[in-house]
Write a protein that binds this DNA or RNA. Structure first.
Lengths: 115, 115
DNA sequence: GCGATTGTACGACCGTCGTCGTAGTTTGAC
DNA sequence: GTCAAACTACGACGACGGTCGTACAATCGC
């Protein structure tokens, strides 16, 4: 009885997404790596946390995913033992048009420059 | 003799500006307020620190301006007892095209929404 | 020189953040 | 029921960040 079947996770509603939170979430290299990975998948595609190989412990990985979710950058839903993650492209675009694309583009440029 | 006349301040070169640092700098409401203010002035216009009324102590104000400068978001130069600040529009645009405009636009939308 | 203005340096405080490890929960497969 | 896989909760730790106050420095105007 402790299980409510599909365990629910708190997500900010589209209109509750705060710019400062999003910028903060994106200002960490690990989290930017996650976003880059998710952005590289098709629209609406989801990936388990374990699909992205972060060079930190599992606890830390959990932490970063939560920060992204609470900022409204990604959505998370349980399926089986996995937790599927997806970029909230539409919500971000509706709230802050162009922001995600611009940041991803800036990130790509910087990575290419540093290569 | 302790004076090197125009006291110099360290600024990252254009190519040294890091995306994470910029995003972090912009993720604070106070600093966003500063950037918004500077963006509201003409291209190349400068404003003294004291021209922007932040609701914090002078020490804290100094701190925020330094974070912005070290991230490469603004340039600072002494003139008399004042320190003139300006957005590094060109450098930011060259390094991360559209980023500043997109963030400012997102900020404006959010402020309007919350009004 | 003196005083006022503007900003800095330094230290303190305390909360947040990124990190970890260990122990635990939930689920699916057998 | 048992086991393994995937993720979480919790507590710890050290580093960083935003804030302040006080004391100081540089410049300008008189």
């Amino acid at each position: 009885m402790p299980t409510a079947s599909p365990r629910a996770l708190d997500h900010p509603a589209r209109t509750e997404i705060r710019l400062e939170a999003v910028l903060h979430a994106l200002s960490d290299p690990m989290r930017l790596q996650v976003v880059r990975f998710l952005a590289g998948m098709g629209e609406g595609e989801e990936a388990a946390c374990s699909a992205i190989d972060l060079a930190v412990s599992k606890s830390t990985t959990t932490h970063h995913f939560r920060v992204l979710r609470e900022a409204g950058v990604i959505s998370q839903v349980y399926r089986g033992t996995a937790k599927l993650n997806a970029l909230r492209r539409r919500d971000l675009e509706a709230q802050f048009p162009g922001l995600l694309a611009t940041v991803l583009n800036a990130d790509a440029s910087q990575r290419q420059r540093l290569r």
